[in-house]
Design a protein around this nucleic acid. Structure first.
Length: 487
RNA sequence: CGGGACGUGGCGCAGCCCGGUAGCGCACCUGAAUGGGGUUCAGGGGGUCGCCGGUUCGAAUCCGGCCGUCCCGACCA
């Protein structure tokens, strides 16, 4: 890496900091195609760990994986009115194949509701065929005008769940259950505790009846929509003829949900935990949780040190710890320390000749606790046996730190547009106010502050007492709403 | 898609105003010594200067067009 020893300090220019961290941690790189990125092994490893955890959570709640095709007939997209209006501007379209003009253009999926509900319609006849609880891991493409690595790229990886139910109550329950899974996942795995709730009409998914979302607060106090779960009602089932015969023998349209999280979560992780030294990867997501750096002298201690390092690595692996030994000979130990710190590896262990004599190892955590030394020397067996607990403790600490930051940057009890603007200009993240429900107020707020409504908070997040008046000063509050400047 | 800036070995930049055939730092390769926070010395490889066209004896440099990147808006997981 060039001559820069320090990253652009966060705060001066968070965007520049973000780009630098993502590239210097070797998470991703730009591809030759405008707006799309190459996810490098380190970034993909993090995504894989996210996938694995989420996939298990979906399976534990009765979902199954399936795969639907990349190309969708244009006419499918056009069938649901709001859906086509929402996605038309960002569709990539295939008009030619096999050297011929296609009779009907095919779109590269921006999301798969249409093709999936088309297929569900063929599979469902009776209420006995319901519910269908499916998920797919796939890539989708939205021709975004302004892109950023992980946060908004033309092509991105995600999971999209699509379910069909016999009753609206059951579909609604599914929607909320998934929202809960997302929240738990973001909290416990990414250490990125979100605020969850309902999206306003203007912010909801194109084609949904109701959208729920997880909104996380980044270190620059901008909100990131990190996951969404939609109650689609019968909007799609009616357009795709997804019908079933009820217990009573009636023909009825099914009730659908769809929900997704994407590689954007990797970007969220970066912006939640990264610091001036680079990336910080929470232990549960880290492809490498402990890197061992042997201290190699040009003398006869080398073989013994390397043997010890391998032995310790083997014992850590037996405990389920993901370990990497960095025995590269052409780099000094210091150079390796900086490299692994940049990539966010949670723990580093150094083993050298002195440790062999003393039966100890040196341990350094990626984020050094307040007032602690940069390295601690720990008895070897304790260091090995205690590693899983150390990793869990670090995981929890990162999460607690993020939660504390979110709360410290949340402002409640705001009663006017002036106060809202003041709070946001003063560096606030989430601002809670009352709202009369009128979309015109969202316009007003955006005009005045650049902030948008993020969610109408769920019960866990509401203020007590609830706000009485709308932030516009115009009428009483129908609901409470969370405002923020957003990605 | 509108406004602004920029495009020169892998990365960061100088050279451009005033045209003469490309340079610096880091990274990379070889060797030796070094090795507990970015090691040192010596030697070495790598660039049709974003692309296309124009002006000129001659273009990284001047002119036109296109493409791309970044920042600010509008749009979005």
């Amino acid at each position: 890496m060039a001559d820069e020893k320090k990253l652009t300090p966060r705060g001066d220019d968070f965007s520049a900091w973000y780009n630098e961290v993502v590239q210097r941690a070797e998470l991703a790189d730009y591809s030759p195609v405008r707006g799309s990125m190459v996810i490098r092994p380190w970034g993909y490893g993090i995504w894989e760990n996210m996938q694995r955890a989420l996939d298990q959570m979906f399976k534990d709640t009765g979902h199954e994986n399936a795969y639907f095709p990349l190309l969708i007939p244009m006419s499918f997209i056009e069938r649901e009115k709001d859906h086509v209006e929402g996605f038309a501007p960002e569709l990539a379209v295939v008009t030619q194949a096999g050297g011929k003009q296609l009779e009907e253009p095919l779109v590269i999926r921006p999301t798969s509701e249409t093709i999936i509900y088309h297929m569900y319609a063929k599979w469902v006849q009776s209420y006995r065929d319901l519910p269908i609880l499916m998920n797919q891991w796939a890539n989708v493409m939205r021709w975004e005008l302004r892109t950023r690595l992980f946060l908004r790229t033309a092509e991105f990886l995600w999971q999209e769940g699509h379910t069909a139910h016999a009753t609206p109550e059951e579909a609604e329950e599914e929607t909320l259950s998934i929202l809960g899974i997302y929240r738990t996942f973001m909290d416990e795995w990414i250490g990125m505790p979100p605020v969850t709730g309902l999206k306003s009409e203007s912010e909801k998914f194109a084609g949904a009846v109701r959208s729920y979302a997880c909104e996380a607060l980044m270190q620059d106090n901008k909100a990131l929509q990190a996951g969404t779960s939609h109650f689609l009602g019968q909007n799609f089932s009616k357009q795709f003829d997804l019908k079933f015969q009820s217990v009573e023998g009636q023909e009825e349209y099914a009730w659908n949900t769809s929900w997704g999280v994407s590689t954007r979560l990797v970007g969220g992780m970066v912006m939640t935990h990264g610091d001036d030294d680079g990336l910080v990867v929470p232990p549960r997501l880290a492809p490498v949780q402990v890197v061992i750096v042997p201290i190699l002298r040009g003398d006869d201690t080398q073989a013994a040190v390397l043997a010890k390092v391998d032995e310790v690595a083997g014992r850590l692996k037996e405990l389920g710890v993901r370990v990497k030994v960095d025995a590269r000979d052409h780099l000094s130990p210091g150079a390796k320390y900086y490299e692994w710190e940049r990539k966010g590896v949670p723990y580093r262990m150094e083993i050298g000749p002195k440790d062999l004599e003393k039966g100890s190892v040196a341990l350094a955590r990626r984020v050094i606790p307040e007032g602690a030394k940069r390295k601690e020397f720990v008895e070897e067996n304790e260091a090995v046996a205690g590693m899983p607990a150390r990793l869990e403790a670090f995981q929890t600490e990162l999460r607690d730190r993020a939660l504390a930051r979110r709360e410290a940057n949340t402002v409640r009890g705001v009663n006017s547009l002036g106060e809202l603007a003041e709070a946001l200009d003063g560096g606030a993240g989430f601002v809670y106010t009352g709202w009369n429900g009128d979309p015109a107020v969202e316009e007003q707020v955006k005009e005045a502050t650049k902030a948008t409504s993020r969610v109408i908070p769920g019960p866990e997040f509401r203020s007590d007492p609830a706000p009485a008046t709308c932030v516009s000063g115009n009428g009483k509050a129908e609901v409470e709403v969370v405002w923020a400047r957003a990605y």
